[in-house]
Amino acid sequence: MLEKVKEIARTVLAEKQADGVLGLMKGQWDIIQPHIFESPVEVDALVIEPKWLLAKMAMTVLRSSREGYRLAVVVRGCDERALTELVKRNQIEKERLVTIGIACTAEQAQACICDRPYPQKLDCGDAVAGVDPFSIESVKELLAGDGPARMEKWANILKRCIKCYGCRNSCPICVCVPCKLEDQVWVETGVIPAEVLSYHLIRAFHLSDTCVACGACQEACPVNIPLMALQLSMREMLRETYGYDAGLDPERNSPILYDLCKEPAAGQALPDWVNSLRKDDES
């Protein structure tokens, strides 16, 4: 699989489909780091393990490079979804982006509790079946129990937070400047642990309809807070109610940005006088 990725990367560079390929490089002393390969000879040092999300980096590179610079990115499923979201939110110009999609292994999918461990544009490797996150014991346990039990569980977990902002920084889609989490109005600054409710719920909610379930937040957390469990329940709600999955359809924006007439919630009956005003306008 690795050879195939290298081959594609070389072709992309040789045929000038892109000016650079962003991927992982095994460099001096076997240190692995992200790198932009700009000539086909360099590509020999390309590797595809470990999992390393490159979407946010791709955004930074494209922002700071000259106009018209085109970048190819070696992406996994989550990376591709993240890039799609970034394009949808006008953070990346679609025309300047090429993806080289690789499939994850079954072990990786298990480790990430990922339900789509492959990109839609799959160039290398074979897609393995995803894992249903809600069938995983640890997730089930976090979301189990009645209100007070869960409240206590989560309060205890989130109390561990040292407010390193790792979850925010590592998230490929968490890109706003300025950030509300640094604003005294929303989250008291200068206190540790973070104000549990404001900090975590505001962060989680801001990603409710953009989270692509990559697990980066959780992996970045130095105190092992299972942050993804919070996102999963909201993702599930969007899927059930609107049939929406973040990062899959580049043409479809988040349903919560539209009114109920354009993006109705499944199973929710709208009274027929809804939007009567607009109907009058049209006739």
């Binding site: 869960r150 719920l201 909610f205 309809d209 349903p255 919560i256 109920l260």
Partner: peptide, 23 residues
């Protein structure tokens, strides 16, 4: 116009988060 539609959608989604955290 339809601003309150957006409100209801956002807040319903927030309820999911409130439920998940036991609030």
């Amino acid at each position: 116009n339809d601003a309150n539609h957006a409100a209801i959608k956002r807040l319903e989604l927030l309820k999911t988060l409130l439920d998940a955290t036991g609030i």
